[in-house]
């Protein structure tokens, strides 16, 4: 009886007793969820265009973050360079590096494997992950780096909102992350739904052969989506690393996008966003209110549990397409 109370009633009693903490938990979940959505978006873009599950998305987040910090260090070391100028120059150069990476991946990894089964392409992204880890460690070393934030005019500090006899603390960097991520998601959604390239991407997603037959360049589309995915990785890297550090441990967090994808569907941009938010909020509420019952630390598997429960009711995910194959 006591256990049932602890599972079904006590958490809600706690929510009512300290609504400020509930709001804080929801906010932290939303911020985490937005960042999960960004990571998931990187996966979705590439999956839509090529049917490839890009295992390297996580390391791309780390690689982009390390490149930015590394280039900032190099430019700052050149002499009397204003820190903001150096930061934005590094940002521009990092965008360039992500473009070169996209072209390189298309030329050296994807193009030679055209028309191969998806599992081969997946294996190739697995290999790409370890190449990027190795190259990243070779160039930047294994030590964690502090992300540049003030230099990029990203806000610091926090604002406390006094409410329900308590307070909810909003870190300015989290607010910035939520706004920037939302803008980025909206921008990408418009780009891929309203522009010619976006329509081409959707055509490629439907059928490579049909897209080729109407003159759409697969190579060009792949470069664009890998570049877009690289940009998403860069923004994710900046925002997540601003909350901790840029380190190779960050790539593990990218795997948290898997339940988001299970939930939202591998081909749906709205699915990535809504799925990210549900997972982000769900895992924080779960860890905070139900975690102590199970000894804590349940966050890492709870996300998968939530996704699997959803799958029981919607096997195609929240926004995924229901595929019926008749035999």
């Amino acid at each position: 009886m006591d256990l049932l109370y602890k599972i079904f009633l006590d958490p809600f009693v706690q929510m009512g007793a300290a609504p400020d903490l509930l709001l804080q938990t929801l906010w932290e979940g939303l911020v985490g969820g937005v960042l999960y959505a960004l990571i998931a978006l990187g996966f979705v873009l590439i999956f839509k265009a090529s049917g490839v599950f890009n295992f390297a998305q996580g390391i791309m987040v780390v690689f982009a973050g390390l490149t930015l910090v590394g280039l900032f260090g190099v430019i700052s070391g050149l002499g009397n360079v204003n820190e903001h100028v150096a930061a934005f120059a590094a940002l521009g150069l990092t965008v360039g590096v992500m473009f070169v990476l996209a072209v390189g991946i298309e030329r050296l990894v994807l193009r030679p494997l055209v028309n191969q089964p998806d599992i081969i392409l997946f294996m190739a992204t697995f290999g790409l992950t370890y190449v990027l880890i190795g190259v990243g460690e070779l160039i930047f070393g294994g030590e964690p780096k502090v992300m540049i934030t003030g230099e990029l005019f990203l806000p610091r500090g926090s604002t406390d909102w006094e409410v329900f006899g308590g307070f909810v603390s909003f870190q300015h960097i989290d607010l910035a992350a939520a706004i920037i991520a939302s803008l980025m998601v909206a921008g990408l959604a418009v780009f891929f739904s309203k522009t010619r390239i976006g329509r081409a991407l959707r055509a490629v997603a439907d059928s490579h052969k049909a897209a080729l037959s109407v003159g759409i360049s697969l190579e060009q589309i792949w470069v664009i989506v890998w570049f877009a995915s690289g940009l998403v990785a860069l923004v994710t890297g900046i925002m997540w690393a601003a909350r901790s550090d840029v380190s190779f441990a960050l790539q593990i967090i990218a795997l948290r996008a898997l339940p988001v994808l299970i939930l939202g569907g591998f081909t749906s941009i709205p699915g990535a966003i809504v799925g990210g938010l549900i997972i982000g909020v769900g895992e924080k509420l779960g860890e905070f209110y139900w975690g102590p019952l199970l000894g804590g630390g349940i966050e890492s598997w709870l996300a998968y549990f939530i996704a699997l429960v959803f799958l029981l009711f919607r096997p195609q995910g929240l926004f995924g397409e229901k595929i019926i194959e008749r035999v």
Binding site: Q24, I252, R256, E299
Partner: peptide
């Protein structure tokens, strides 16, 4: 009060520290 941090959550500890606040 015990606050375990799984390896995958090393850089994602906001839930643990919310619990500390509670």
């Amino acid at each position: 009060k015990l606050y375990p941090v799984p390896a995958a959550e090393m850089q994602n500890q906001s839930a643990q520290w919310l619990s500390v606040r509670r």
